[in-house]
Design a protein around this nucleic acid. Sequence first.
DNA 1: GGGACGATCGAT
DNA 2: TCGATCGTCCCC
Length: 215
Amino acid sequence: MTSPPITYSFFEKTALELAPALLGTVLVHESPEGVTAGRIVETEAYMGPDDKAAHSYGGRPTERTRVMYGPAGYAYVYLIYGMHWCLNAVASEIGTPQAVLIRALEPIDGIPLMIERRGLSSLTSVQQNEDGTWPTTKIKSLTNGPGKLAKAMSIDKRQYGWSLVDSPLRILQDSSDGIPLEITTGPRIGIDYAEEAKEYPWRFWIKGNPFVSKG
DNA sequence: GGGACGATCGAT
DNA sequence: TCGATCGTCCCC
């Protein structure tokens, strides 16, 4: 929460470069109900018109995908399976519809509010440890998936097109600067229809981090 | 106007 | 492994 903000230029790289760069940064949402925040630990790159897994595959803008055709650093939010919202950060430059899906967070702030929003009654009695941290095994289910983190952070169509640099929903720099992250890659999740693209190692996560989605 | 489908999740 | 659930997209 004390991390410096990120600039638009940070997002002005290919999705393949932005996806690992976002690992370790902090997603914050200052909502009317309160503040929630989490460290990004898992992402996926969607590379645009030539990527069969991307919503922008083929390169023709639609009402849903139009934000990806604009400048980098804005939120692309979409509904999947009729019930879950997912958050992406738009990458690259104007006219190049690339984005990075935020797949998992390590909760940092507003954990009781996250529990409430997720409706996890089994967690309502979870307490902080003596040192102020929360028990990892209990709270990891809050945000270890794109639909789950959107629910916990109260992200839905209202945030479509918001700036991720300067809005109540924004991304802050990695606060653990100096400590290089160990990053692992693998195929993206849930894109079996994408033919050859389903094998591309365009999913990125912090090695060994317990808050990463199963996959 | 209609039908097929999905960058997920949680219960079985 | 399977069902929920509905906006988007594309075809008729």
